[in-house]
Nucleic acid binder design. Structure first.
Length: 511
RNA sequence: GCCGGAGUAGCUCAGUUGGUCAGAGCAGCGGAAUCAUAAUCCGCGUGUCGGGGGUUCAAGUCCCUCCUCCGGCACCA
């Protein structure tokens, strides 16, 4: 039994959960469930990023304290994840005392290692918006992108992390480990980014301007600025650091027994740089191991424009849950998007994918259960069930190869292909014809046993992406639990009482 | 501007190291069957594999060039 630790980013608590958050989180959930099914001890981490200026502002607008706003938003996120069937093991918040202490310990370690210095941050500040904007945000005209007001270049005291010192080590890490950043296109982009000299990273802000943050341990007039605070959550949750211990025993350099390093950090491609550059160099600076893999996925686009409220083109697949159910939406999101690439959402494609689910898989389950009920009084015959042995073994192998390689779409296609093969098996065997002739009884037994067994395999393969429907299928097959992969080979379904029930994926009348 | 990716049947896309690679699914047409959610199964594709040039006995598959589209180029989760 292995161990598997995976994370989503912690989501910024200033706005409502949306498809971008949901996709990452569902992706993580599918991987977490897959690894549990493979027998791994899984730690699946998600949470919220509670600090920062934006939260300070939004809270003020709503007449709340920052923490009250964060409490409210954290609940929203957790409720959203409940609705989507997310099985996270831990929901971390950066306002947790433990996390704040770990951030402090990490900062002290970086400081003691000589990687932090005081300097001045120079940036484009908007007096109207009371905040800095990036070069990209202000554009060539150099106006604040929100109100169009003026921005001025100002300086303020900040602490900086000597990120530049780690540039060569980071490049070496990426070049020697081709699978460390996936997909390859993101890896290339990061390498391209590192082609230019790496600057040092500003990690604090004056408390006078932003009070809602974690104080710098040796200078209470400064608070941590986003990166150290947010990214460190991955280490906090791992248990590698004990901030209460004396400085040389906290776990840096010689990590405490823990889940660190993370097996995979998942995120959208928009924050690849923070995860593939800032975070690894911070870890290097603190003498901690690097995560084993960094996976940046693509975006859902409508037509050819990025999904955006401001564009008014939000057509949200999540809204389809009302009519089609959560599992169907999860299926669509995982099956349709090539893991890592962008994908375009259209209602037509959703319906195609739903029909696949309904007609190929749902119908296979329904016709199989119905035949067992009709021909064998609802009991799976005690007969050899190896009818689709070759196809099943191939499908399971292809599925596991694909999911191990983070090609989820491919794995689920392989599972669906097995369902197609099983439908073909039904046509070839013609159970209805066998049932008419007394001498067909044995063959009919073998056929039904094979189909029942195949459904168990399919329930196992589909469970990570469609946990509720897979569990329901398992119940109808008389199983207490859906088997793990290692249990599939010795699986015996004979003698089980099955229940037909209503279709797993019913026909949905539109309009 | 610099760097990178993509352009394959009506649609969405597969196509390792060059030689049954010209494919799958969906849509369409024809047929079979009736256990099933009018679901299933079988059969049918004359596609300049973006244009042009080159290497090779042989190229979507390598090289050059052109066209089109997309992504990245830091302190924004």
């Amino acid at each position: 039994m292995g161990s598997f630790y995976l994370s989503t980013p912690i989501y910024y608590a200033s706005g409502e959960p949306h498809l971008g958050h949901a996709y990452t989180t569902i992706l993580a959930d599918v991987l977490a469930r897959y690894h549990r099914r493979a027998g791994d001890d899984v730690l699946f981490l998600t949470g919220t990023d509670d600090h920062g200026q934006k939260i300070q502002e939004v809270a003020e607008e709503q007449g709340l304290t920052p923490l009250e706003l964060c409490d409210r938003m954290a609940e929203r996120f957790q409720a959203a994840w409940d609705d989507l069937g997310i099985s996270n093991d831990r929901f971390i918040r950066t306002t947790e005392p433990e996390h704040k202490a770990v951030v402090g310990a990490l900062l002290e370690r970086l400081y003691d290692n000589g990687f932090i210095y005081e300097s001045e941050y120079v940036g484009w500040y908007s007096v109207g918006q009371e905040r800095y904007f990036t070069e990209k945000e202000i554009g060539p005209d150099r106006v604040d992108p929100i109100a169009g007001g003026p921005v001025t270049k100002i300086r303020e005291k900040n602490y900086f992390f000597k990120m530049s010192l780690f540039q060569d080590r980071l490049i070496e890490q990426i070049e020697k480990n081709p699978e460390w950043i996936v997909p390859a296109t993101r890896r290339n982009e990061v390498l391209g980014f590192l082609n230019q000299p790496l600057e040092d990273l500003s990690i604090s802000r004056p408390r006078s301007r932003i009070h809602w943050g974690i104080p710098i341990p040796w200078d209470p007039d400064q608070v941590t600025y986003v990166w150290v605070d947010a990214l460190t959550n991955y280490v906090t949750a791992s248990g590698a650091i004990d901030p209460e211990a004396t400085k040389d025993r906290r776990g840096f350099g010689d990590p405490l027994p823990s889940r660190w390093p993370c097996d995979v950090h998942l995120m959208g491609k928009d924050i690849i740089t923070t995860h593939a550059v800032y975070w690894p160099t911070l870890l290097m600076g603190a003498n901690l191991a690097l995560p084993r893999k960094i996976l940046a996925h693509g975006w859902w686009v409508v037509g050819d424009t990025k999904m955006s409220k401001s564009l008014g083109n939000v057509v949200d697949p999540l809204a389809l849950r009302d009519r089609f159910g959560t599992d169907a939406v999860r299926w669509y999101l995982m099956r349709e998007m090539v893991t890592g690439q962008d994908a375009s959402y259209t209602p037509e494609r959703f319906l195609t994918r739903y029909d696949e689910l309904r007609n190929i898989f749902g119908n296979l389950a329904h016709r199989t259960l119905s035949m067992i009920k009709r021909y064998r009084a609802g009991t799976v015959p005690a007969a050899p069930s190896g009818g689709l042995a070759v196809e099943t073994a191939a499908a399971v192998a292809a599925y596991r190869r694909a999911l191990d390689g983070y090609r989820l779409h491919e794995g689920f296609a392989a599972a669906m292909d097995l369902a197609r093969a099983a439908n073909g098996f039904v046509e070839t065997q013609e159970p209805w014809a066998l049932a008419r002739e007394p001498e067909g009884a044995d063959e009919l037994d073998r056929t039904l046993a094979t189909l029942a067994r195949t459904l168990v395999v399919l329930a196992c393969l589909f469970e990570p992406v469609m946990p509720a429907r897979a569990a329901e299928l398992g119940r109808r097959l008389g199983l207490a639990n859906i088997p793990l992969f290692e249990e599939l080979d010795g699986m015996d379904v004979s003698g089980r009482a099955v229940r037909v029930g209503t279709p797993l994926f019913p026909r949905v009348d539109l309009g």
